Simulated scan of single mutants.
Amino acid sequence: MTDLSPPEQRPVAGIVLRVSAATIFAFMAAMVKIGSDHGLHPIEMIFWRFAFALPPLLLWIALRPGGLQVVKTKRPLAHLWRALIGFVAMGFGYWAITLLPLAEATAISFAAPIFATLLSAIFLLETVGWHRWSAVAMGFVGVLVIMQPQNLALPLDGLVVALVSAFGVACVIITIRQISRTERAITTVFWFTLISAVGTGFVVPFFAAGHDWTGWAIMIAIAILGGAAQLLLTASLRVAPVVVVAPFDYTQLLWAVALGWLIWSDVPSAATWTGAAIIIASGLYTLYRERRRSRPQRPVIV
């Protein structure tokens, strides 16, 4: 069986993997914020996130059936583009975490599927009915509630950076949809990691600085957590449909709130809770409509 062949469906396993990925992503985000407090630059954290993750990823691929043959690709430019927009999205995401409380940065990141719906209509020419457009509008209302543009309770630069990151993630979602038609998931993960490690390697000298053991421990932790979460995320889609596992991404917000409170004594405002609830409801309704659209119609018996 290859990564392109129909997988065995195990919804419970997929949900467990997805919740684990969301939990680890939350802890990784907390480590990024801790790293920023410790004086680490986002570019530097991103570089070492890929550099430290590449060797274990190669080992994991080598031990899989087919070994390193699975990283062969006939679409190098597509992987280059995916890596470029993925790096930009990640860079702005790390930056947003340093500028905003963890819960607010996480909540705004959930706007990515909203942007993805817009992009799928424009670039993939997908039919988007009024149900999904209503969900998109509702999602943007949720974002505005969190941002509170009437009084800007949160720093404007952090809000803008977070929205740019969410839009970048949406671009990644659309690109992966196109690449996955011909490429294995593990192939995409490998080339994203390799290209990002090499690319950031050229610019990191302009941002790097000397660090103590705590700084290096933080960057190693970010790499391990980020790599593990990415693999779990990919594995969840291997054993269960996206409409089953995707709703559990929102458990990351619960961890973000808990970690933000425990480490920085941040307590989300009522606006954050309300906006996050609206965004999550929008995302869940979009997934529900996707499931309805993909369900085969029953024959009418007359």
Rank of each mutant, 00 (worst) to 15 (best):
M1N: 05
M1D: 10
S5D: 13
P6C: 07
E8N: 14
E8K: 15
Q9W: 04
P11I: 14
I15N: 04
V16I: 10
L17K: 09
R18K: 15
R18M: 15
V19Y: 09
A22L: 04
F25Q: 09
F27I: 03
M31D: 02
M31K: 01
D37K: 12
H38P: 03
G39E: 10
H41G: 01
P42D: 03
I43R: 02
E44L: 02
E44D: 11
W48R: 01
R49V: 07
F52L: 04
A53R: 00
P55I: 12
P56M: 07
L59K: 07
A62Y: 10
A62F: 14
R64N: 12
Q69W: 05
V71A: 08
K74R: 15
W81G: 06
R82C: 11
R82M: 11
L84V: 09
I85K: 04
I85L: 10
I85T: 08
V88P: 05
A89D: 03
M90I: 11
G91M: 08
Y94W: 09
L99C: 11
P101H: 07
I108H: 08
A111E: 05
F115V: 11
T117N: 00
L119W: 06
L119V: 04
A121N: 10
T127I: 10
V128S: 14
W130H: 14
W130R: 15
H131R: 10
W133Q: 12
W133D: 13
W133K: 06
G139N: 09
G142F: 00
V143P: 01
Q148G: 02
N151H: 13
A153K: 09
P155Q: 09
G158F: 08
V160M: 09
F167V: 09
G168K: 01
G168N: 04
A170W: 03
I173T: 11
I176G: 01
S180P: 00
I186R: 00
T187W: 00
F190D: 02
W191A: 05
F192C: 06
T193M: 02
L194D: 03
S196W: 04
A197S: 12
V198R: 04
T200A: 09
F202D: 07
F202V: 11
V203F: 09
V204N: 10
F207G: 08
F207S: 08
A209K: 11
G210A: 15
W213R: 11
G215L: 10
W216M: 14
M219I: 00
A221W: 02
A221M: 15
L225C: 06
G227T: 00
L232E: 06
L233A: 05
T234S: 13
A235V: 03
A235C: 00
A235K: 02
L237N: 12
V239D: 06
V244E: 07
P247S: 03
L254M: 13
L254D: 08
L254R: 03
A256E: 04
L259I: 11
L262V: 13
W264S: 06
W264C: 03
S269Y: 12
S269F: 12
T274A: 15
G275W: 10
A277V: 01
A277T: 12
I278T: 07
Y288W: 12
R289T: 02
R291C: 02
R293C: 02
R295S: 15
Q297C: 10
P299M: 14
I301P: 06
